[in-house]
Nucleic acid binder design. Structure first.
Length: 381
RNA sequence: GUGCCUAUGGUGUAACGGUUAGCACAUGAGUUUGUGGUACUCGUAGCGAGGGUUCGACUCCCUCUAGGCACC
C-alpha cells in the first residue's frame, strides 16, 4: 500500500498526492528548511500564511540541541514549534559531511565533534532513527554516507555501498524506535540513492534500495559541485528506474530552473536553502513574466538560453531610491508593503526585519513556482 | 601671545631614506544548492600645502595651515 497517489502525468512530469499523518501534500512540492526547528526569521504562523505544505528539519542540529531526551520530553517537534502540518527530517548524514570538519566514518557510524561545544558524538543509523522518531517527523530519511563532489570513483562506490547497508539498518531500526513512542506509527522512511555522477553506481544504489523497499526514494549527493549536465543526466536515469507509485525526492536543490527541469524528469519533492539563504544575503527572486502562462517545457536543458525570473540584488546602490516593490506582480506580504528602497535600507542598517521580509518573498516565489508547475501538469496532462 | 606634540584612503591606524604605502571598518560588485544570519572573493579610495637636503623624501629640515596639550 502506497501513501503516494499519482493523479496526472505529463510525459515524465507527475502530479500527485502524498498522505502523511499530518495531512495530504500535493506534489510536486518544495519544503522550506527549518533546520533547528524554525525557518530562519519566520514563525509557524508565517509558514501557514505562506501556504507551505510541509517543512524540513534536521536531525543533526536537533540532536545537538535540544537533544534526544529533551525532544522526547517536549513531545516532538510538531508540539515544540506549534506546526501541525507535515514534517520531514534529514538524517544528519549530509550535515556530518558538510558541517563537521573533524569526523571519522566507520561501518558503525560517524563520530564527529559538536560544533557547539566540541563534545564527541557517534551518530549511527540507529541513533538517527531514534532521534527522528523522537522528533516525530512524518517522513524520516535514512542515515547515509555522502561523498564529496570531487571524489574518486572508489569513494563514491564506498559511500554508496555503505549507505545501502545503513539503509537496511535504518529500515529495521525504525520500527524499534517507533515502539518507544506512541502515535508515530505512521512515519514513512525514505531511502537515499548515492553514487555520484556514475550511472552504474546510481543504478545499483536505486535497485538495492528498492529491494529493501522504502516509502519513497531520494536522490542524494548532487548539487555538491558537479556539472549541471551530470546532475540532469543522473536524475533522468534514476527516475526511469524508480517505481511509479512512490514519491521521488531530489535532496538539496536547487535553482528555480533546476527544479523546473527535475519536475519534468519525474521528481516530486524538493528542499533547498537557496530561497532562504539568498534572502538573508539580499538576493531576491522575481518572475520576469506571468508564471501562469509560462511554457515550462522550455526549461529542460542544463543551459536554458533565458530564464523566467530575475535575481534582484536589493542591496545594490541602484535601488537606493527605488519606490517599487521587488516584484510588482507578486502578492506576498513583502511586495504588498515594502519598496526596494526600504528593503535596501533595512539591510544597510541591519534591521532584523530585512531578513523576515526578504525570506517571506523568496519562499513565496518558490511556493508559487511549485503551484504553477502543479497546475501546468494538471492542465495539460 | 609663548613653548611642545600630531597631521597617512570616508573613519581608525601600520611601516620604511629606495621596488605596486600594509591592515581593519565603511563603501561598491560578486559567490552561496539535504542552512554557518555573523562567511568568502574581487574592486574603489590615502602620504595636509609649499619649499629645501639627497642619486632618491610619506620618512630628515624649514615655512604655512589645521588640531591637541601646557604656560603666561
Amino acid at each position: 500500500m502506497s501513501r503516494y497517489q499519482l493523479k496526472q502525468q505529463k510525459e515524465s512530469a507527475r502530479r500527485g498526492q502524498l498522505e502523511t499523518a499530518h495531512g495530504a501534500i500535493q506534489t510536486p512540492f518544495f519544503m522550506p528548511i527549518a533546520t533547528k526547528g524554525a525557518v530562519k526569521s519566520l514563525s509557524s504562523f508565517d509558514m501557514k500564511e505562506l501556504g507551505a505544505q510541509i517543512l524540513l528539519s534536521n536531525t543533526y542540529h536537533l540532536l545537538l540541541r535540544p537533544g534526544l531526551e529533551q525532544m522526547k520530553a517536549l513531545g516532538g517537534l510538531h508540539t515544540l514549534m506549534n506546526w501541525d502540518g507535515p514534517l520531514l527530517t534529514d538524517s544528519g548524514g549530509y550535515q556530518v559531511f558538510s558541517l563537521s570538519k573533524m569526523n571519522k566514518t566507520t561501518e558503525e557510524g560517524v563520530t564527529f565533534q559538536s560544533h557547539i561545544d566540541g563534545s564527541r558524538i557517534e551518530l549511527t543509523p540507529e541513533l538517527s532513527m531514534a532521534m527522528q522518531t523522537a522528533i516525530g517527523a512524518d517522513i524520516v530519511m535514512q542515515f547515509d554516507d555522502v561523498a564529496a563532489g570531487d571524489s574518486p570513483r572508489a569513494r563514491y562506490e564506498e559511500a554508496m555501498e555503505r549507505s545501502l547497508r545503513w539503509a537496511k539498518r535504518c529500515a529495521s531500526a525504525l520500527p524499534l524506535a517507533k515502539g518507544e513512542l506512541e502515535g508515530v506509527a505512521t512515519q514513512q522512511l525514505f531511502g537515499i540513492i548515492q553514487g555520484g555522477t556514475h550511472e552504474d553506481l546510481r543504478e545499483r544504489s536505486a535497485r538495492g534500495l528498492m529491494d529493501i523497499g522504502f516509502d519513497g526514494y531520494a536522490i542524494g549527493g548532487l548539487s555538491v559541485g558537479e556539472k549541471r549536465e551530470d546532475s540532469y543526466r543522473i536524475v533522468k536515469h534514476i527516475c526511469q528506474i524508480l517505481p511509479e507509485n512512490k514519491p521521488r525526492y531530489f535532496m538539496g536543490g536547487g535553482m528555480p530552473e533546476e527544479i523546473v527541469a527535475y519536475v519534468q524528469m519525474g521528481v516530486d519533492m524538493f528542499d533547498c536553502v537557496l530561497p532562504t539563504r539568498n534572502a538573508r544575503h539580499g538576493t531576491l527572486f522575481a518572475f520576469n513574466q506571468d508564471p501562469a502562462t509560462i511554457d515550462w517545457s522550455r526549461y529542460q536543458d542544463p543551459r536554458p538560453t533565458e530564464l523566467f525570473y530575475d535575481r534582484v540584488r536589493v542591496t545594490n546602490e541602484q535601488f537606493a531610491t527605488d519606490q517599487s516593490p521587488i516584484d510588482p506582480t507578486c502578492t506576498c506580504e513583502t511586495c504588498k508593503t515594502t519598496s526596494r528602497a526600504y528593503l535596501r535600507h533595512l539591510f544597510g542598517v541591519q534591521e532584523l526585519l530585512a531578513y523576515r521580509l526578504a525570506t517571506i518573498h523568496n519562499l513565496h516565489f518558490y511556493l508559487t513556482l511549485m503551484k504553477h508547475l502543479r497546475e501546468w501538469i494538471a492542465k495539460t496532462a
